[in-house]
Design a protein around this nucleic acid. Structure first.
Lengths: 193, 193
DNA sequence: CCAGAACCATACCACCCGGTACGAAACCGT
DNA sequence: ACGGTTTCGTACCGGGTGGTATGGTTCTGG
């Protein structure tokens, strides 16, 4: 019972995700968020808790939506195809025409003040989780699928570094074609293509 | 004539650089800056203009100091050695024990609010300048020094992406050894090593 | 020894931040 | 139609932001 809410929480969360994606965690003010979501401040707090919880929920949605391609890409074989699928997927996700440039996780990872340290640590944790998943995937690959003498964890770290570097460039204006060329060059480190 | 200032502007600028490096442009408040510099607000404004000009001066100092190794590294031959020198130099600069983790330029490049858009654009411009310099260096290399079929601009973009990716990881806690392994893996994309 | 100039320190400005108290409005069960 | 409950809208809170006005202090040139 009681007065029904006049907005769709899912759609509002989507708008919040876009604002966070474009402006980062600290760069997105409550005014920016509520205006984009079409919601008043108290409604935001009643529905999503506070700014940090709203960000975490937006992050969940980002991972399960925008980054949803990862699960499938990880399964590809041989291992080089999985890596290629991941990198090209990242490149496309960071350069979508209807989405902000760059990566939500990377954008929020660097700056700014130390007040948002919990958020930064959460983002670092999630990035580390992806890196670990990739390391597991590569470690499970049949002998011969990896570059000779390469360590799976080193490869995973390298792939993540390329992805994060692309995120920086995308945020600075690099287009999809430029990112895809980076991926193609990066894959040269993986012979037997 | 007049009362002499009681601080050394060069040393104060060095302290400001460290604060900007660690906390980013927006993350560094005037209180943080003045406390680290041992200076009052009006002294800062009288000596350096305003926060943005102070940041630009810190950036100049960063490029000529911390990034000073680039000029020498660019001259190495063959071209692969120049790239290796750059990447290992970046890795070390981003993981110094007495300096903040990560890269001043990358830290400020991503977040946060759009109020600091001029600063972001300036940083993007400087990064593009480095990329262009590297592209010129590679384009001038004798035939055969580059990977077969590789475009110099693509290579330059790739190298910058790896460097920026390392900056993200360094800011997230990656140590010097981890960064150096990324460089070693990245150089696998450049055969004939 | 004094006048003018430069610097230092305090205290303040308007503005924006994340977060909330409170009353009015809209709904449901009875 | 009415009481209870939930949401909405406004207006506000303390605190921090970048930036500055003002007055006292310390120096140099004459």
């Amino acid at each position: 019972m009681g007065r029904p809410r006049e907005f769709d929480p899912d759609q509002a969360l989507g708008q919040a995700l876009e604002v966070f994606w474009r402006q980062g965690y600290e760069g997105a003010s409550l005014t920016d968020l509520t205006e984009a979501m079409g919601i008043t401040r108290p409604s935001l707090y009643a529905t999503f808790g506070n700014k940090e919880e709203l960000f975490r929920k937006a992050l969940d949605r980002y991972e399960s939506g925008v980054m949803g391609f990862m699960a499938e890409a990880m399964l590809r074989r041989p291992a080089r195809e999985a890596v290629a699928g991941l990198l090209y997927g990242f490149a496309d996700a960071q350069s979508g025409q209807d989405t902000p440039a760059g990566c939500l996780g990377v954008n929020g990872a660097l700056a700014c003040s130390e007040a948002s340290d919990p958020v930064r640590q959460e983002l670092a944790r999630r990035r580390a989780a992806v890196e670990a998943r990739l390391g597991d995937r590569l470690r499970a690959a049949p002998a011969g699928e990896l570059p000779p003498g390469a360590d799976p964890d080193d490869l995973a770290r390298y792939v993540m570094a390329v992805a994060q570097g692309m995120a920086v460039q995308a945020k600075s204006g690099a287009g999809r074609e430029a990112l895809r060329r980076i991926v193609a060059t990066a894959l040269q480190a993986w012979p037997a293509g």
